[in-house]
């Protein structure tokens, strides 16, 4: 259990480690790979630092052994093919698509996570003349996790801390855990770059692990 009132340095360190993991996932899935993100990941990620049984370290390790511009190009192409289009998307990164009955956006998970965001004073940015973005895009769910970890770190009271952890638990157990395994499987089946095979494994395993962890913390 989290100690009332204070957090030890090691716990802060661990919360930060989790945050970095979410940041890594956000970088991996939110933009096509660039020179900048390539170096960022290469410099900050221990590619042999992941648990062995998921072998994702190997994918990433091999990826960073490929010729750089070739590797970046392949990861970029994969990113568009898997998540953006213009062709039919093999891995549409929205929870509603995986859990709703229509394989369409804006099904019930969108509204559930919208309510969850709202209970923490968050919402999707509105833009005049444009349809709202779907709240249950992979990136926003991950971003929510990262924001709530900050809330734990910045909390003024144990109650705030617990509330922020409960929010994470909800996102993990009621959302991420329910669809990430299927999404990751689709990515593994369809990705042609080592990068996204690695990323899919990291995403899936980390979500499973983090859910176990957060449940233990509470």
């Amino acid at each position: 259990m989290i100690q009332a009132g204070l957090m030890g340095a090691d716990k802060i360190e661990w919360m930060n480690a989790r945050k970095y993991m979410y940041q890594l996932l956000i970088v991996m899935f939110s933009t096509p790979m660039s020179q900048e993100s390539y170096s960022l990941i290469k410099d900050n990620v221990q590619t042999n630092g992941f648990p062995e049984e998921i072998s994702d370290g190997d994918f990433l390790k091999s990826f960073f052994q490929e010729e750089e511009s070739f590797a970046i190009q392949k990861a970029r192409e994969d990113y568009f093919r898997l998540f953006v289009g213009p062709d039919s998307l093999p891995c549409p990164p929205w929870e509603s698509v995986y859990r709703g009955k229509d394989r369409a956006l804006f099904d019930y998970p969108t509204f559930e996570v919208r309510d969850l965001y709202s209970s923490f004073g968050l919402e999707m940015k509105k833009q005049e003349g444009q349809h709202d973005e779907a709240d249950d895009h992979l990136i926003y769910e991950l971003e929510f996790m990262s924001i709530l970890i900050d809330k734990v770190l910045d909390a003024d009271s144990p109650a705030e801390q617990t509330a922020a952890l409960l929010g994470q638990k909800k996102m993990l157990d009621e959302h991420l855990k329910k669809w990430i395994p299927d999404l990751a499987q689709d990515i593994l089946t369809n990705a042609s770059s080592l990068y996204f095979q690695g990323s899919a494994n990291i995403l899936n395993s980390f979500i499973q692990f983090d859910s176990e962890l957060v449940n233990e913390l509470l």
Binding site: Q23, N44, Q46, K125, I147
Partner: peptide, 21 residues
């Protein structure tokens, strides 16, 4: 393993979020 996999903030252009939330 997990706690040591990423050792520093991983943010692009110094911005941690997409800015959409």
């Amino acid at each position: 393993k997990w706690s040591g996999a990423v050792s520093a903030p991983v943010v692009l252009g110094g911005i941690a979020t997409t800015g959409n939330m």
